[in-house]
Design a binder for these strands. Sequence first.
DNA 1: GTTCGACATGTCAACACCAACATGTCAAAG
DNA 2: CTTTGACATGTTGGTGTTGACATGTCGAAC
Lengths: 181, 181
Amino acid sequence: MSLRHALLGLLADSPQTGYDLTKRFDQTLSGYAWSAGHSQIYPELKRMMGDGLVGVVDEGARGSKTYGITDEGRAELRRWMFSPVGDTPPRNEFVLRLFMLSSLDLADTRVLTENMAAASEQEVAELRQAISDIEKHTPADAGPGYARFAAEFGLRYFQLQADWARWVLSELEKHRDQPDS
Amino acid sequence: MSLRHALLGLLADSPQTGYDLTKRFDQTLSGYAWSAGHSQIYPELKRMMGDGLVGVVDEGARGSKTYGITDEGRAELRRWMFSPVGDTPPRNEFVLRLFMLSSLDLADTRVLTENMAAASEQEVAELRQAISDIEKHTPADAGPGYARFAAEFGLRYFQLQADWARWVLSELEKHRDQPDS
DNA sequence: GTTCGACATGTCAACACCAACATGTCAAAG
DNA sequence: CTTTGACATGTTGGTGTTGACATGTCGAAC
């Protein structure tokens, strides 16, 4: 149940409303980490309150409730962080597609791989921009920048996709002149 | 609905039984692409037959049914391969955890990152072995090796995780001597 | 004063997924 | 002959996930 731990992690940073958390998922985690809509988040927050992992620390305008993490929540988060990875099976549609490349003919394979490379390079460019923004708005005396760490991972990941796709293209090229024998 | 397309892709290679497909998921795709148990696969095959994407091409011993992909199935697979990626949201627990690193204290962060690096390096070693096996059993005159492509992606991915974790450790080190000011 | 967009929370039906339960066949070894 | 392990297919209950529906507040612009 990773949704719960994702919420705990976000609340460990600072108390937030369900609305805030929904936006954070959309802007920060979505892309290469996790995603959740508000229809999943609100009920989960209630359940977590029932389990004593979070509490309502403030009620503002428009019926908003600000949730904060409890000591019990922090303990649970830490326990999860140190538990072995792999309890949730990996699902990656990009990788799945590349496993399926063999079902296409050579011409299609080239076009598709080219598309994948271009799309990944586009994402690399966007992330580079985002990282440059992060660094602009961070004072030089700040501690280790965790948002920067995560962004760096994303950058390297998209760069990997792009590099891999270009490598596949070059391998396909090698075999074009000598289709058999 | 990626399960359907994963099955189509496997069947595009050769006709297989539900049992075969279950094993293929386990051995080939599981790890960094997709996973599915037989309790998901058998009903899905039935549904796909209802939709005309696959058909039973043979019935063997022990009540086994061998499914084959139809022309309609091939068309659907091709359509999917060329549709934009990203219709299914990414879920990656490893990445989620690294987003949550900031919730730990510095000592914990170091230990955890060290763990991540070591685990990834272990997986790199295993995959290198697997790739070397693939190349040993592939005649030199074979066409482009798609299994090799996929394995290469896995290798690069785990190498990325390891490199990233080592990089984070070095960044943490930088800030140790100058915690503030 | 009303309209529009962001804020804010909720429910519900349908679908995806998984672990566990359930059943039976066939071949080989002992 | 019986046991064991691989082959082979199913169902079911519970949980996770999503998109659509539903409701209401507040501030600013027109």
